[in-house]
Design a protein around this nucleic acid. Structure first.
Lengths: 114, 114
DNA sequence: TGCATACTTAGCCATAAGGCTAAGTTATAT
DNA sequence: ATATAACTTAGCCTTATGGCTAAGTATGCA
């Protein structure tokens, strides 16, 4: 693993972990400090920080430090990219399916064409 | 890892690998046999099959065997679930941002309200 | 029947991922 | 000046992941 052709791969990989998914969920309600974010997770801080860094690398969040507090902010644009990728695949599939249905409906009509 | 609260976690994890993402991309164009699907990947068949099984477990594809050929079919519903999750998070974020903007715009007006 | 095709199963191996402790560093509070 | 808070860095450990080979099974073709 570890090599992603498209940046969207990084986003999916980042979201493919329950801790990180929960962090994103929490951040959708607004920016939160690392310390506060970490509370619900039964995990040492350094372990938690690794997840934060991965989310940042994937572009899903940005962080900035003021004093000794680092605050995390969701980056909805990254999610939009993933969303678009998924939507595009479904679209291709659905178009194809529609064409197929149209073909079936028109190639063997019950009544011969007048 | 390996425990997902929501099935959507499994979907993200499955898509978080370039091989599997490429397979999904290919399958959006229509069902393909395992053998054909495997061709573009420089990988032994057993390795490739593991990816297929993971995609199936995530619900992203279904497979069925006819004779000695197993054919893979995309399951757009699973993608829709992931899409919805992403859309929901963004929605929450955007609603909050809108409220915030509204607050800023109304609480300190430049001109006093007539 | 004999042989090739298309997976399957089993088992091994190296690296990546996720988690931990211990020991910093920097900023705030006393 | 100290102590505490909030991360950071370093390094170790275990399991999961992704890939391989070798051998097995079930089909289809000659």
């Amino acid at each position: 693993m570890a090599k992603y052709a498209l940046p969207v791969g990084r986003v999916f990989h980042a979201l493919g972990d329950p801790t990180r998914q929960a962090v994103v969920d929490r951040l959708s309600a607004g920016p939160v400090s690392v310390g506060e974010l970490a509370v619900p997770f039964e995990m040492a801080l350094p372990s938690f920080m690794k997840h934060i860094r991965q989310l940042e690398l994937a572009g899903l969040i940005t962080t900035s430090k003021v004093g000794r507090v680092r605050t995390c902010t969701l980056q909805p644009a990254a999610m939009a990219v993933a969303e678009s990728w998924l939507a595009r695949q479904r679209e291709v599939w659905e178009r194809r399916t529609d064409r197929l249905e149209h073909f079936v409906a028109t190639s063997q009509p019950r009544e011969p064409i007048a």
